[in-house]
Design a protein around this nucleic acid. Structure first.
Lengths: 131, 131
DNA sequence: TACGGAAGTGAAATCGGTTCTCAGCTTCAG
DNA sequence: CTGAAGCTGAGAACCGATTTCACTTCCGTA
């Protein structure tokens, strides 16, 4: 809930509200978030929405998803890790229940001497509708 | 080898040669490929390189990698599927030996009624050098 | 050898998303 | 009240990716 994040500037709070209202799996773009945010705060600027998304992403409140081939990044409320699927026909993005096993991630990190903070798993192909 | 791809226009063949000469795990951008291609064909244009990469990607001869947070897409010769890691400190991209198990992919595809053609697994974090 | 269509090509323009700039405003500690 | 720090909106700048357009090359067919 947005109430779990404190000390947020009012506009950023608005951005967070919009993203959370869209809900998990909604995959909204910064543009769409801007449009919806203006319904609450007509004078909010796109730059502010974008800066808010960056901040909220740093805080871990929203997820930023860069799907290969997708025109722009999409956002959704932070939730349990899952994979994404993008249809090459209609461009729709849907959630898939998959995450790289924690043990596997740990092993990869150890072997390469790296610290893994985030993972992103995206599939592309054809959805049921686009055959 | 490039000899496995037939009937390629000369410029596209040049692009393929450049990518393959860079080798697996090289992660070169379209710009870098263009610079190297000009060493072989001084008059080649960027648009041609870009079109060549699209064609070669369609043919399955090169992989296109869109790493989240990375400025631009990178390319490398087609090889066995593997994951990528991007350091948030230095921006370097390295290969990791991991792929989603084929059985898992099949199960996901079945459950959602989709046809999965490609997968992309990318991790982000800190490399050994950036601590 | 001519011909004609299809495909390839280079330069530049364009596009779209993202990020930056800047001047003004708000907030808040002291 | 005052000053500093942070927030804000509008628009411009940026940058990689893609498209456009006019020209050239290639190749099959008479």
């Amino acid at each position: 809930m947005s109430s779990t994040v404190q000390g947020l500037p009012p506009n950023y709070r608005t951005v967070l509200d919009v993203v959370e209202e869209a809900g998990p799996g909604s995959h909204v773009t910064a543009q769409e978030i801007w449009v919806r945010a203006r319904a609450l705060r007509p004078r909010i600027g796109f730059a502010t929405v974008h800066r808010g998304l960056i901040r909220l992403h740093e805080l871990g409140a929203v997820m930023k998803i860069d799907v290969a081939g997708g025109a722009s990044a999409v956002y959704e409320p932070a939730a349990s890790p899952h994979a994404h699927f993008r249809c090459t026909g209609c461009g729709a993005i849907t959630d898939l229940q998959y995450a790289v096993p924690a043990q596997t991630v740990r092993r990869l990190a150890e072997r390469h001497g790296i610290a893994i903070e985030r993972e992103a798993v995206t599939f592309t192909g054809r959805c049921a509708h686009c055959g």
